[in-house]
């Protein structure tokens, strides 16, 4: 992939691709977050306890994704070099790992947003 800081067009394409990937995974996460919240409510949990658990789980996934994304960016190059050096050929790449972790973070963020919105609606009823 070309260097995103190489030109304005490359940066625009990089941001569009990245935001699209985040938005798609956030939608999936939002659906999962909503299902989790409604599921917890259905099991008899109070509105506060259910939204706290669902939101915290979303934050856990988001935190894990963000931290792992940074880890991929920081260490991915070194891991690729080590693989080349050791001739291991596992097909693991920094770009793949970064995208996967962005998806995880996006899903967590989506779940957090969905729980916040749905939780506010449920609390208002």
């Amino acid at each position: 992939m070309s260097d995103p800081l190489g030109s304005t067009a490359a940066l625009r394409r990089y941001l569009r691709d990245g935001l699209g990937l985040l938005a798609r995974s956030a939608l999936v996460g939002a659906a999962l977050g909503a299902v989790l919240l409604l599921g917890l409510l259905a099991t008899g949990e109070s509105e506060r306890a259910a939204s706290t658990t669902a939101f915290a789980l979303g934050a856990l996934v988001f935190g894990f994704g963000t931290l792992s994304w940074s880890g991929s960016v920081l260490l991915g190059g070194s891991v690729e070099s080590a693989q080349r050096f050791l001739d291991t050929n596992t097909d693991w790449t920094e770009a793949d790992s970064r995208r996967a972790m962005a998806r995880v973070a996006g899903a967590g963020l989506g779940a957090m947003l969905a729980v916040a919105v749905l939780g506010s609606v449920v609390a208002g009823l």
Binding site: L60, G65, L67
Partner: peptide, 19 residues
């Protein structure tokens, strides 16, 4: 890159404490 690292740690700590 320190920003997302600290942001991730903050979210993880917050989540674990509340769970």
């Amino acid at each position: 890159l320190l920003v997302p690292v600290l942001f991730g740690v903050a979210s993880l700590v917050f989540a674990i404490l509340h769970l």
